[in-house]
Amino acid sequence: MSELKIENLHVSVEGKEILKGVNLVIKKGEIHALMGPNGSGKSTLSFALMGHPKYEITGGKVTLDGKNLFEMEVDERAKAGLFLSFQYPSEIPGVSLANFLRTAYNEVKYPDSEKKVNIVDFMKLLYGKMELLKMDKEFAKRHLNVGFSGGEKKRTEILQLAVLEPKFAILDETDSGLDVDALRVVAAGVKKLVGPHLGVLVITHYQRILHHIKPHFVHILVDGKIVKSGDYRLAEDVEKSGYEIYEKEKVAA
């Protein structure tokens, strides 16, 4: 069974410990939600898993299908099947979305071979995914994220997820900065992509995206540790009472 396994993960940023022993196992086909107050370390977890150079792993282990993630370069993690939907994706002027995604597709699908997808076949695939996510074809020609609205950026992230077909996807605050309509569109897109072939970690501050993408498991992250795990009802509790009681528990413990 394919799984992403996080064991006792400790991560520091600029010498300050942010994650203080996170344990989490995500199996293929499962949707997990990671919730927590600002500064609890949610985004740190996503960047550390993807391999951002600023995040220093000070302890613990993460494996993807048994392979040590921390022995891989960033691109190798992508090739191994990990995907991160960025909260703030970079804008890359002069590089069209279609050309970039075709390069990425070739790298991910045919990592160690000269084989490349035929342009016509790729455009067919890309337009198919764009249609699925109700995106205008014009997007393919636009420069990657340049001048995109918040909602357009998030949809483009989900489009990349759809094209690259990873085993595990981390959606880092995909709901942040979106109005209700934009959220609905993005969430509907994600909903079309989840299924038995994909494991998902939805990172969010609010519960609202979870109305659309119903998680199997919910975890509360406070001060760098998962303080409580449960099913969907845990997200409902958070909506009602906020994070305060978990923060208190943490202090009491």
Binding site: M50, G51, P53, D75, R77, F100, A104, E107, P111, L164
Partner: peptide
Amino acid sequence: FYLMSRGLR
């Protein structure tokens, strides 16, 4: 980092 996270060396 962003581009590498999509599989680019």
